[in-house]
Design a protein around this nucleic acid. Structure first.
Lengths: 129, 129
DNA sequence: CCGAATCCGGGACGATACTG
DNA sequence: CAGTATCGTCCCGGATTCGG
């Protein structure tokens, strides 16, 4: 495989009313980095650069884009502190936190079917702390 | 939306050994159409064109690529019947079928947080039949 | 520190035609 | 029916620079 494009949320074929909830969910969390971003934020609130450092291979621009889409979709909350130096913290909304079962299911599948992987979801969360 | 790139599986940053099971899972099922393909195949085995018609907006080339990646990742089984006219049937492997909890979790989240959506997972499966 | 804006190359993707 | 081949476009996404 080459790259993958963005698989992002996008408006993704919004011409069709999106009857399917699976499709609707995929349109919101299917972005290239969104799953991992959500995983990081499930553990705790994080600052921009902290998030960036925890995503090897993700560029600043990509992270910004993905966070903006997640924010627009009501999954991530962005809190700006008017300080010097500036500080911005990202956290999950209630809607975002309810994605935990999805992430957990992916984790359990990956743990079972992929080699060289962390033991379980809790450990993953701990290691992400 | 625009397009979205592919968000596909790709080798996606295979330089790092992929310690995280969530990341590993995303690398395999994160492709642009993979979630919907898996949903279709959860219902029953399907032929190529049948699958294609059930995915509005997906081109034959894209479908071929995604199916090949899914096959290479051991999620989809491809059965060729030496007939005239040719017939090829796609189904989920056991590994693929075990993705049902992931799809179900996405479905339940979508049903709860997105408008104008089917009532529940079973109905979605039925409608996809 | 946290971005936004710009430039630009490469590859993902659509369209079309062809084959067994 | 189920693909493969080829071509051209578009836009994703990396690098860099600038601003608050």
């Amino acid at each position: 495989m080459a790259k993958m494009g963005t698989a992002g949320s996008r408006k993704a074929r919004h011409q069709d009313p999106e009857h399917c909830p699976v499709e609707a969910a995929l349109n919101k969390i299917g972005g290239k980095w969104k799953g991992l971003i959500i995983l990081r934020l499930l553990v705790r609130t994080r600052r921009f650069n902290e998030l960036l450092r925890s995503l090897p291979g993700c560029t600043q621009r990509m992270l910004t884009n993905q966070l903006r889409e997640l924010e627009a979709d009501g999954i991530v909350h962005r809190e700006v502190y008017p300080e010097v130096p500036p500080r911005v913290e990202y956290s999950l909304t209630e809607t975002g936190r309810e994605l935990m079962p999805v992430i957990r299911a992916m984790c359990e599948w990956g743990q079972k079917h992929v080699q060289h992987v962390e033991p379980d979801f809790e450990t993953v969360l701990e290691n992400a702390a």
